[in-house]
C-alpha cells in the first residue's frame, strides 16, 4: 500500500506539481502497480543469479573515435531560452 505522503515526496523529487485529485488518483494507481509487481515475490528464486538484462547480450561497446557533434545553433534550436550559446534555465534554487 502506498501512502499519499510518498506520492507527494516522489512528485517533489521529480519536480511535478500535482493537483489534489491527481494525487488521489496516483496514490491508487501506484498502489496497484506495486501490488502487481509484488506478485513476483511469490516466485522461488533460491539459487538464481540476479538478472541484469533480459537480452542475451554483453559488451556492446564502441571504439573511442570522435563523431561529429551538433552545430550549436541546432543544439539550441529547441531550447526555450538560449543565451550566449548556453541553455538558460530558471535557477534550480528559486523554485525549490
Amino acid at each position: 500500500m502506498i501512502e499519499r505522503e510518498q506520492v507527494l515526496h516522489v512528485a517533489r523529487l521529480s519536480r511535478l506539481r500535482l493537483s489534489d485529485e491527481e494525487v488521489d488518483t496516483l496514490t491508487g494507481e501506484l498502489s496497484s502497480v506495486l501490488d502487481h509487481v509484488d506478485k513476483l515475490a511469490e516466485v522461488d528464486i533460491e539459487g538464481v543469479e540476479p538478472t541484469s538484462h533480459v537480452l542475451p547480450l554483453e559488451n556492446v561497446l564502441r571504439t573511442d573515435e570522435p563523431r561529429p557533434s551538433l552545430e550549436r545553433e541546432v543544439a539550441l534550436s529547441q531550447a526555450p531560452d538560449p543565451h550566449d550559446g548556453a541553455f538558460r534555465v530558471p535557477s534550480p534554487q528559486a523554485e525549490a
Binding site: H83, F87, R88, V89, P90, Q93
Partner: peptide
C-alpha cells in the same frame, strides 16, 4: 553564488 541567483546557464 548558488543561493540568491535567479537563472542558470547550462553548458553541456
Amino acid at each position: 553564488r548558488i543561493s540568491g541567483s535567479d537563472a542558470s546557464e547550462v553548458d553541456f
